[in-house]
Amino acid sequence: MKTEIFKMILPMAVIAVAVTGAFSSNAMNKNSKAFAPKQGYTHTSPSSACNISNMCSDVIGDFCTVGAEEVRLFGKTNPEATTCNVPVYKP
């Protein structure tokens, strides 16, 4: 009797462990976005130039800031752009 129950439950337990492992490894891959470094620039007004500041990230999170006043930093659409209006985030 015990061996019959064991023979039924063991394959189900192995399948359950395999399915759980597959889902957890898939979730880890989705959550492990690599740090994508982006240069952050200070931007005081639309007519002012973008001044290089700190490295930030394009992975969405808290806004990238600098200094005690927590001045918000922005990125450029491409390195040659003259304006910096792309939101960047803390790494």
Results as ranks from 00 to 15, higher is better:
Ala16Gly: 05
Cys56Gly: 07
Pro11Ala: 04
Lys7Met: 15
Cys64Val: 02
Ile15Tyr: 01
Ile5Ser: 11
Val17Asp: 04
Phe6Asp: 14
Val59Gly: 04
Phe63Asn: 13
Ala16Pro: 00
Ser25Trp: 03
Val17Ser: 06
Val19Pro: 00
His43Trp: 11
Pro37Tyr: 01
Glu4Gln: 14
Tyr89Arg: 03
Leu10Met: 08
Ala27Gly: 06
Lys7Glu: 15
Val88Phe: 04
Lys76Arg: 09
Phe6Ala: 14
Lys90Phe: 08
Pro87Tyr: 06
Val19Ser: 02
Ala16Gln: 04
Ser47Val: 13
Lys30Tyr: 08
Gly40His: 03
Ser32Tyr: 02
Leu73Phe: 05
Cys56Ser: 06
Cys64Ala: 02
Ala18Pro: 05
Ala49Cys: 10
Met8Gly: 11
Asn29Ile: 10
Arg72Ile: 10
Thr82Ile: 10
Cys50His: 07
Asn29Glu: 14
Lys30Trp: 08
Leu73Gly: 05
Gly75Cys: 03
Asn31Gln: 13
Thr65Phe: 00
Lys38Leu: 07
Gly67His: 02
Pro79Lys: 04
Glu80Ile: 05
Glu69Asp: 12
Thr3Ser: 14
Val19Gln: 01
Thr83Glu: 12
Arg72Pro: 09
Ile52Ser: 12
Met12Ser: 06
Val66Phe: 00
Leu10Trp: 01
Phe74Gln: 08
Ser53Phe: 01
Ser48Asp: 15
Met8Pro: 02
Ile5Phe: 09
Leu10Ile: 10
Lys30Ala: 13
Lys30Glu: 15
Leu73Pro: 10
Asn29Gln: 11
Ala49Pro: 01
Ser47Glu: 15
Ala18Asp: 06
Lys38Pro: 10
Cys56Ala: 08
Ser48Glu: 14
Val59His: 01
Thr83His: 07
Gly61Lys: 00
Ala81Glu: 11
Ser48Ile: 09
Lys30Ser: 13
Ile5His: 10
Asn78Gln: 08
Asn54Met: 11
Pro79Asn: 08
Phe74Val: 13
Ser48Lys: 09
Ala27Ile: 09
Met55Tyr: 09
Pro46Cys: 09
Ala16Ser: 05
Ser57Val: 04
Ala16Cys: 06
Thr44His: 08
Thr3Trp: 07
Ala27Asn: 09
Cys84Met: 08
Pro87Val: 14
Leu10Gly: 04
Glu69Val: 10
Thr65Tyr: 00
Lys2Ala: 15
Val17Asn: 03
Val14Pro: 01
Thr82Ser: 13
Glu80His: 03
Pro87Arg: 10
Lys76Asn: 08
Met1Lys: 11
Glu4Leu: 13
Gly75Val: 09
Ala81Asp: 15
Pro11Glu: 07
Leu10Gln: 07
Thr20Ser: 11
Gly75Tyr: 04
Lys33Phe: 10
Met1Thr: 15
Lys7Pro: 09
Asn26Asp: 08
Gly21Phe: 02
Pro79Tyr: 03
Ser32Arg: 03
Cys64His: 00
Ser45Gly: 15
Asn78Ser: 12
Asp58Cys: 00
Ala27Asp: 12
Gly75Lys: 01
Leu73Ile: 06
Ser47Met: 13
Pro87Leu: 12
Cys50Trp: 04
Glu4Cys: 13
Asp62Met: 00
Ala22Asn: 07
Ser53Thr: 11
Ile52Asn: 09
Val71Tyr: 03
Glu70Ile: 00
Lys30Phe: 08
Cys56Leu: 05
Asn26Gly: 07
Val17Phe: 00
Ala13Asp: 02
Val59Lys: 03
Pro37Asn: 04
Asn29Leu: 10
Val71His: 06
Thr44Val: 12
Phe6Lys: 11
